[in-house]
Every structure is written in structure tokens, then in C-alpha cells.
Design a protein around this nucleic acid. Structure first.
Lengths: 340, 340
DNA sequence: ATTGGCAGTCCACATGGTGGAGTGCCAATG
DNA sequence: CATTGGCACTCCACCATGTGGACTGCCAAT
């Protein structure tokens, strides 16, 4: 069984290895940390840690490196998430406080996160599954061309341009706009889509085709809306940490570009409000990301909807710092979006 | 002076080197191509090419590699831009034809381009400098909250949410909307901004503060609009071509993320309608991109405005293919956006 | 349980040797 | 005078070998 000191040893191995990128040996441990015991004792502890598969030795006679399991124990039991410094908090507020738009907030957030962690940062757009329709707007652009704008109470805006078969006049537009807002306002998205299906009934028969066309487009727009999007920043950090990826960073860059993969990965991570979660190394192997870790947290926006944000990097990353940063940013973002 | 055959030699050196990634020697040239002369003759030609600094030898006794200047001559005089295959053209049409939205068109374009060239693809949003106001829409969201939507004839849409100091009623909204559209419709952006400055005059004095606030925000929105944006795809290709960058791909990834750099670079490349342009290697040194080349072309959108699109990759790239692809995509995009 | 000592392992690095690809030069050739 | 075969030379890429050093594992002593 691994002793308390054994866990301490694991902690310093993780810390030193993350910092130095080199396998850490018993001697360097007693030199750099004051355990009050000899190197031989540390060696005994290390042998136990190796039995538990928490650390491993790349070669017969080299120092030890944490295994994925070792990182897991470190993250779950040993990492101390000390809050950010006052200066850092100040920077967050100053930086995010300026933003005016939802898009802007998220764009700033993701850049901030990548700077705080020196990793690739990811922010998911607020899920619209709990969002409600706030307003629908129809804007005539030309005789047979129309723009539909669709706004949710979470601040999300989606617009689309539509060519209709027959000319539409302002009266019809006005009528449509009024009816749409009256019947959809405040509804959840699925409900709104359902209601749209029978919407055409309230109009004069000769209007049916054009109304139907508009309604169908709007309905599609409402549902498509539920697809989540991801924004990211700091991909250059991948080049910096390149040596931590055995082969090439190609699969990582690929997964990043293929947002679907990351969204699915995000989706698998259960949301702990206020908490921060890490998926480590091979836990992501299914996505071709067996050498990367993902640290995420949930944040909530005014609609009550919850989305995720986080960072992605090599398994050998500074979990303490990154988890603290992710947690702080998520909290601040929730506060910012919640009061809106 | 370099003979015609000498130029042919340069051509095959560029082609073979790009294909094989290895310095090409006189012997392999006579083996792979039918020059009808001996290796010694090729060697003489190569000596001349080296005098002209079109090729260089990494080591005393190794094959030759094109210099930046060599690539330049290749691009200007030797590359044959054979049109894309019918299948490729078909793919372009099929892929881009589906899109419905300006954003969608550009997103598809950039992905397409990265797939055709296996490089990082870049598409600049259509410049709004020549765009005109098509419609302004005001959407009340709450008593003191309002969304302004701003649409140009190039299909660009910009929205912003605004908190106003005092409550606004539908009557005022209606009046504002009508007046805004009446006076701004069809105007260029600068003109619109200028007109907005004196817009408040037409309203009752007690309305001035709130109108002023809305107008100021709108004006800001109109001008901010002129900032160009860039979208990109295929960054994973950088990892694939990583070995072509001496040090790290870090500065490249960095420049890509720092869109400003690329926009400035784009801006320096003169636009030749229908033509395709290459900036090669050290010509981009000023941007920390001394080992990368950029191939661009201009495309025009309905507003008559012109923007750029292109690809970015290592100096050692397949210029023939990439220039042909960029040209074809640019032409198709112009056609697609022009008829809209 | 902890410790110092010690043999053993294995890597990282340097050294040295060899084959081969390629060049430059030159004299010979049509 | 361009072209050519031949030849000496250069230099890299590759392999083998050797050595120092950093660790470990084990054991007997405390």
C-alpha cells in the first residue's frame, strides 16, 4: 500500500516532471525537496508507486515519469487549486468587462484562457436547448427577398436570407411578424418549431405557399440553432508543446479543426456546476487524442442553459494552474452572463 | 547566361524537389527526364544556375535545391497553370452551390481551398469600403434594451445589443426605423456615418438623449464594420509540412492566429483581377514568415468590393497546383457572389 | 522502517570508419 | 564550341564501438 509520503513523492514527481520534461530520479527528489529521508527510502516508495502503476520508468535505469493513472491521482487528490492572484483576477475583469456582445464576450474569454494557461483554449457557445424565443424579425430586402432574424433570450442571434417564390408586401410582413411574435415569444425552441408546423392555418389560402416557405425556413433555422458551436484560440501553443506528442501534432490539429469531435468529447464530460473536470491522456484515446488532456468546467448563461469551456493540451500539463484558471474564468463568465 | 535548357533544368529541379523533398542531382535528372544529354552537361547548366543564384547546394557534394529566387522564376516563367479537371470543377460547384448564407459560402470556400491545396487556406471577408446600406432594423428586446441590425447590399449583417438610458416605446422605434432607412438606404458607409452625426436634429428635444445614444452606437457599428476579417481552414496541414520549416511552426501558427499580420500581408499584395499572385519565402520575412509562401487571388462580390483569398504554406510547395486551385476558386466565388 | 553501499543496467553522447551520391574539372570528341 | 566520359575529391548519412553518468534494485546494517 502506498503511504502518505508515497503520495507526496508522486506529487513532486508530477510537479518536477511537468516543469522539467525529464524523468525524475530519487536523488534529485531529495535534493530539491525536503523529505527528511534518504534517497534509498524514496526509492522504496517509488517501487511501490510503480507497483500501483502510478509511475513508470522509460528505461531500466532512468528516473520515473507519471502514468496517466498517476496524473489522475494527482488531479483527484493532490492538486491544490490555489485561487488566482489578485492581479490575474483584475486582468480577467478588465479584459472581459469591455465586451459588449455575446460573440465578443466569448471571443475574449477564449483568448484570455489561452493566455492564462498557455494551452489551446475552447469555449462552447451556450446551449440553446433551454433557450426561449425572444423575438422574431422579418426584414424585406427586395420584392422576393427577405431576411429572417431570430433572437433568443440567451442573447443568441441567427439570421438568414431567403428567396421566396412570389412577391411579398409590407402588410403581409407586418401581419406575419406580429403573429409570429405573439405565438412564439417565450416558447422553448422545440415548442416553437412544433407550433410553426401548423402556423400557416391562420392565413388566407392564397397566402399559404409563401407563408409556408417562410415558416419552413424559420423552423429549420430554429432547429439548426441547437447545433452547438465552438470557438478556440491559442493553437500556436501546440507547436510549443510539440515534443510532448510522440508522433506528430497532426491528429490534434485535425481534431481541433473538426469541431464535431471536440463537441462530442465535451458532451461526454459530466457537468459539475462550479467544479472543474479533467480528462487525461488515454481517456481520450477514442478520439485520436490519447496523448492529450482536456480540462473543462461548465458555465451558465442567463437562459439558464449550461455550456462548457476549457483547455486542451498534452497530458504533461500543469494541471494545478490550468484547472484553477479554467475554474476562475468559468465562474467569472457565469457571473457576467448571468446578470445580463 | 542561362540557356533555354537551363531553365528546363530549373523547372525539373523545382518539380522534383517539391515532390521528393530531397536535393536533386544531375544524375537523377537525366534518369527521370529525357533531356537527351549527359549528366555532365546538366552539371554545366547547374553551375550556371548556381551562378545566377537560382539554385544552391546544401553541402559541397549534394544535389541542388531551388533558392527563393529560383522559385520566383519558376512561378513567373515556368509554372503551367493547367485548369482543374472536370471532376474538380464539379466538386467545387457541388460543394459551394449548397450554401445559403454569405458566412456559409465563405466557410465552405475556405475548407474547399484547403482540401484542394493541402495547405492552410485563407479567405478575407468582402471589404465593406464600397458596400452600401441596404437596411437598418431596430428590435425592441425589453423596455430599455434594443437590438440594432445593420445589413449591407453585399449580404453582410451586423447586430448589436444596446442598453439605453430611458425607456423606448414602439412609436419611437417605428419612427426611428423609418427615418433611418429613408435617409441611409443606399448610402456608402462613410456617408452613412456622416449623416448619422446630424441625425438627431429631426427629433423632438426631449428625445434627443436616447436617439443620440442609439445613433452613436449605430454609427460606431457602421464604422467598425469596415474592419476586415479573415477565416481559415486546414491548419492541420502545417503539421504535415512541418519539416519544411527549419525551426518550429510556432511563428507560423502565431501569425495565423494574429489575423492582423495576415491582413496586412494581404493588403500589400496588389490585386490583379483574374490573376493569381505569389509571395515567396523571404519576401514575407518582415512578418516572421520568411519560410512561407502565400498564393492569393482577388475575388469580387456583388457590392463591387474586392477581397482576397489564398493559401499559405512552406516555400517548398506545389505552386502549379496551388495557383491553379486558387485561381479557379476565386473565379467561381466571384461568379457566385456576383450574381447574387 | 530506514539507510549506505554496491553491482548492474541502460541511455546519451562522442568517436571513428565506411559507402555512396554528387560535384568540379579536364582532356577528348563531334 | 557545346558535349561527354572519366576521375579525384568532398562531405554527408549511417553504423559500430566505447565511455561516462545517472539511476535502480538489492542487501546487510542500524
Amino acid at each position: 500500500m502506498v503511504s502518505d509520503r508515497g503520495l507526496e513523492v508522486l506529487r513532486v514527481i508530477v510537479q518536477d516532471y511537468v516543469a522539467s520534461r525529464e524523468p525524475v530520479g530519487s536523488k534529485s527528489i531529495v535534493e530539491r525537496h525536503s523529505f527528511g529521508v534518504s534517497a534509498a527510502t524514496i526509492r522504496n516508495d517509488m517501487a511501490l508507486l510503480e507497483d500501483e502503476e502510478l509511475i513508470t520508468a522509460p528505461h531500466t535505469s532512468s528516473g520515473r515519469v507519471p502514468t496517466d493513472k498517476g496524473y489522475r491521482v494527482f488531479v483527484d487528490q493532490l492538486a491544490d487549486l490555489r485561487p488566482l492572484t489578485v492581479a490575474q483576477r483584475g486582468a480577467i475583469e478588465a479584459f472581459l468587462g469591455q465586451s459588449v456582445d455575446l460573440d465578443d464576450v466569448l471571443a475574449r474569454t477564449v483568448r484570455l484562457l489561452s493566455q492564462l494557461t498557455h494551452q489551446v483554449a475552447l469555449v462552447q457557445y451556450p446551449s440553446l436547448s433551454t433557450a426561449r424565443v425572444r423575438h422574431v424579425e422579418l426584414v424585406p430586402l427586395a420584392e422576393t427577398r427577405l431576411m429572417t432574424v431570430f433572437i433568443t433570450d440567451s442573447g443568441h442571434v441567427e439570421q438568414r436570407v431567403l428567396d421566396v417564390a412570389s412577391p411579398i408586401d409590407d402588410v403581409l410582413i407586418g401581419e406575419l411578424r406580429a403573429k409570429l411574435n405573439a405565438s412564439l415569444g417565450g416558447l422553448g425552441l422545440q415548442d416553437a418549431a412544433a407550433k410553426l408546423a401548423t402556423f400557416v392555418d391562420g392565413f388566407a389560402p392564397e397566402r399559404h405557399p409563401v407563408v409556408q416557405q417562410i415558416v419552413a425556413s424559420l423552423s429549420e433555422q430554429v432547429l439548426a440553432n441547437k447545433q452547438d458551436r465552438l470557438i478556440m484560440a491559442g493553437t500556436a501553443n501546440l507547436a510549443r508543446t510539440e515534443d510532448d506528442f510522440s508522433g506528430s501534432i497532426f491528429p490534434v490539429l485535425e481534431a481541433i479543426e473538426e469541431q464535431v469531435t471536440l463537441l462530442r468529447l465535451f458532451g461526454e464530460m459530466e457537468i459539475q456546476p462550479g467544479g472543474v473536470l479533467a480528462r487525461i491522456g488515454r481517456e481520450n484515446a477514442g478520439y485520436g487524442l490519447g496523448e492529450t488532456s482536456v480540462v473543462t468546467s461548465g458555465y451558465s448563461s442567463s437562459g439558464g442553459s449550461v455550456a462548457r469551456l476549457g483547455v486542451l493540451g498534452p497530458t504533461r500539463m500543469d494541471y494545478s494552474n490550468n484547472m484553477a484558471a479554467v475554474r476562475a474564468v468559468a465562474r467569472y463568465l457565469s457571473r457576467l452572463l448571468g446578470t445580463e
